[in-house]
Design a protein around this nucleic acid. Structure first.
Lengths: 196, 196
DNA sequence: GAGCAAAACTAACGCTTATTAGTTAAACAT
DNA sequence: ATGTTTAACTAATAAGCGTTAGTTTTGCTC
């Protein structure tokens, strides 16, 4: 009769959430079973229900924790008085750092949100749309300021947001790589391009 | 007793594959059921097995059709005598055009490959790794030529490949958008950046 | 119209799934 | 030590899955 181990200041719910994020990332939400999750925690599947409500609640927690973190960040970045380029740079760096710190959760939030149930599915989509809109506004300001060329703001935002997802593929090299150099490379690429 | 309708010069297998791509994109491979696929085709689930081998075979066909198309393209691009920048541009444009033309299939190939069974899983990964290597080599040549700044080739490749995936989000605006302008915007962004 | 192949159907199998109910063991407070 | 709460367990349920077997219908060829 093993028990779920939670460090001080951590609920067992949080321990399960973390383990679920790892599993959902590896197998995908639908392919991951509660039995597998239980094995990862050294326990029988029904025991999990003493600490969580349901499988879909786990996904919901993971997705909205991440979404809220990004929303909070962009509100902070937006409020500060910086150039548009600096703001975009700050957003890019946050994406990279957060991805490296909370890889499993960010990955799951990016890939498995489509399995959220209503009304959470719609809410999640709205939150993302709102994030994009704020970023589009920053780009528009940058064009007005003549910081940026006359680019298509929405296309540019989606290109940047997709580009930073490339970090997913770097997780395995995490240790070998100078994170700051990686970050600088991507920021420079997305702001200044790669040609001389 | 409805029948699966295949146009001349199209096998019923191909019709099922196409329908599967749409379904797998919408729901994800694991969440999509053969019964749903059958409904989409106006037929009972077991009838599908007169034309296909298995569900996983459908995924396999979709993924490798796409992977092979990209592999063939990069081999053509590589062989031509062009600047590195031109080659990268050609690759980016191919990604965009192909994504717009075969949206469902490319999406499924990008998102659902992890549900391939061995040995196809490993084969798919190797094919992708090989694609990346070829692209890395083009970037390296560009740096040697002094076409590009001293960037990290592998990071750059993954950034570009992720960036072009942003097209996924544009599918719904497909009709409203000038594809050529979209393409130019992304190419310019990834080669020359967005700052003045 | 008869014969035949293609392709549909119904019924069912064996398995896995998330989850609930009911019960027992452990951990803690008194 | 006793009573109580927390959290584990076992057993079971209902639903859904991919797929197979066996049968019937359809549509073409002679």
């Amino acid at each position: 009769m093993a028990k779920i181990k939670a460090a001080r200041n951590t609920t067992k719910n949080a321990v399960i959430c973390k383990s679920a994020a790892v599993l959902f990332r590896k197998k995908g939400f639908r392919a991951a079973s509660m039995r597998e999750l239980a094995i990862a925690l050294g326990v029988e599947a029904p025991s999990l229900y003493n600490h969580i409500g349901s499988k879909s609640e786990l996904l919901r927690n993971i997705c909205f924790n991440i979404a809220n973190a990004f929303t909070n960040n962009i509100d902070t970045v937006e409020a500060a008085s910086n150039t548009a380029a600096k703001k975009i740079e700050q957003l890019i760096r946050f994406h990279i750092q957060f991805m490296l710190k909370s890889f499993d959760e960010v990955y799951v939030s990016n890939h498995e949100w489509k399995h959220l149930e209503e009304p959470y599915f719609t809410e999640f989509l709205n939150q993302r749309k709102s994030y994009e809109s704020k970023m589009v506004q920053i780009i528009k300001n940058g064009i007005t300021n003549k910081e940026f060329r006359k680019i298509h703001p929405h296309v540019t935002v989606l290109t940047i947001l997709s580009a930073v997802r490339g970090l997913e593929f770097w997780q395995k090299y995490k240790e070998q790589i100078n994170v700051r150099a990686l970050e600088n490379n991507i920021v420079q690429h997305l702001l200044k391009g790669i040609t001389k």
